[in-house]
Nucleic acid binder design. Structure first.
Length: 414
RNA sequence: GUGGCCAUAGUUCAGUUGGUUAGAACGCCAGGUUGUGGCCCUGGAGGUCGUGGGUUCAAAUCCCACUGGUCACCCCA
């Protein structure tokens, strides 16, 4: 084997594309149900767009981006997530002018240069939605409900929703100082990773998976106990709405998302059906991002979900999407019938019938086996005798029955 | 970036303390039935045993390096 797909990339083969298409269709139909419209942005952007929106200190920007210089020397990056591009497009195309609230969704490949493992690829696929222009908790709740509805529509029941509020530009800095002061008291005993975060992003220390860190920070103040009035009211309303929508959730005061731009609501949907990488979707509110990118202050909420992890669950559940199959397979019993069979196949196709025939000049037995393998509903064997009589025997491959039909109006018989 | 495990037909795997032409199942092709699929029977094609080096009379088997895969850490979808 000479060429292989690049590490961390995968071919989605014909045997699996039916499942992908089914998921894509289901996802789209739920988005449309919620009145979100599709947006398609380029898969690469100026590097600084991602650096600025995701945050210079995040792992994504610090060590995971596919960044390269193009031929003119500009620094280009393959998108590691969708929100930054969508917001760039929102500002560039002035989408705000059409209506006060813009609801869009996207679906497509993302790229991060990490070590691959179960549920993590270098090129992976996400779908997500952004509701831009609304500060209301009703919008947060809609985004979360939308994500949950997609899993429900796909028959995925083993998920759990965790939510938190990470505060805003007024109460978060105040809380961070409080937390930092607490953390300093145990700083020398924290893991090296957490010591680094103490100054840069102390909230991430609470999110550490290190057991010792967790023990040390066990009793420390949590952000959602130190929200200002506006954030607390917003968070309360989101929880109230989720409850009224019948969506179960747990509040996790230590939940901090990996991207810098979140404010107020942050949430994560995980599945116990997955391995170590168990996050199905994540999202939250990002009221400061649009202005950070040069637009007018525009409050927004959104989420992103991984397609491969969804596929892993569906595959594990043995979910099989229906495959396209030929309606009729036309088999030639002898050489003179081949031309007629080819012409008839083309005619049926032009009439909208999924018709298939042999292109390899194979024996009749082989053609029959092929028709069976393809899952064709019917097979018609045509030879000199049938051509002379103008009639043939149409065989139903699933119930083994046969009927005699006129060759001229075959399309009425299948 | 760090660590564990793994690498033999297209696929899933067997291959004894190192020993002669490396096997099975499934899949693929052909025939059994000179014009009818699925089951069955017969036959066939298909492998530089991941790559390179070393030990040995002898290596798929032991050792080293590399490459690839996989899982986990970090982090995330």
């Amino acid at each position: 084997m000479t060429y292989r797909a690049i590490k961390g990339t995968k071919d989605i083969l014909p045997a699996e594309t039916a499942r992908w298409q089914h998921v894509e269709q289901t996802v789209r139909s739920v988005f449309h149900r919620y009145n979100y419209r599709e947006i398609r942005t380029p898969v690469f952007e100026q590097t600084s767009l991602f650096a600025r929106s995701i945050g210079e200190l995040t792992d994504i920007v610090g060590k995971e981006m596919y960044t390269f210089a193009d031929r003119s020397g500009d620094s280009i990056t393959l998108r590691p997530e969708g929100t930054a591009s969508v917001m760039r497009s929102y500002i560039q195309n002035n989408l705000a002018q059409d209506q006060p609230l813009t609801k869009v969704y996207y679906i497509g490949p993302m790229f991060r240069q990490e070590r691959p493992q179960a549920g993590r690829l270098r090129q992976f696929h996400q779908f997500g939605a952004e509701a831009t222009g609304s500060p209301t908790p009703e919008t947060d709740a809609e985004i979360i409900a939308l994500a949950i509805d997609i899993y429900r529509a796909l028959g995925i029941t083993q998920w759990s929703l965790q939510i938190n509020s990470v505060g805003d530009e007024e109460c978060r800095p105040r809380y961070k100082e409080l937390l930092r002061a607490e953390l300093r008291k145990v700083a020398d005993r924290l893991s090296p990773e957490s010591q680094k975060r103490l100054e840069q992003n102390p909230m991430r220390v609470l999110d550490s998976k290190d057991e010792n860190d967790r023990a040390l920070t066990a009793g420390m103040p949590l952000i959602n106990d130190h929200l200002n009035e506006a954030c607390a009211a917003h968070f309360g309303r989101v929880k109230e709405l989720l409850t009224s929508y019948g969506i179960p959730f747990t509040v996790n005061g230590r939940l901090v998302r990996g991207l810098d731009y979140y404010t107020k609501t942050a949430f994560e949907i995980t599945s116990s059906e997955l391995g170590s990488q168990d996050a199905l979707a994540g999202g939250g509110r990002y009221d400061l991002l649009v202005q950070e990118l040069g637009g007018k202050p525009t409050p927004s909420v959104g989420f992103a979900a991984g397609m491969e992890r969804l596929m892993m669950i569906l595959e594990k559940k043995g979910f099989a999407a229906p495959e396209p199959r030929p309606r009729l397979f036309l088999a030639a019993a002898d050489a003179p019938a081949r031309d007629w069979v080819l012409a008839k196949t083309m005619e049926l196709r032009s009439r909208g019938v999924a018709a298939e025939t042999d292109l390899l000049g194979r024996s009749l037995k082989s053609q029959m086996k092929e028709a069976d393998r393809q899952g064709a509903a019917f097979v018609l064997v045509v030879g000199a005798a049938e051509l002379a009589a103008g009639r043939g025997v149409l065989k139903n491959l699933s119930d083994h029955s046969s009927v005699e039909v006129a060759l001229d109006d075959l399309h009425h018989s299948v």
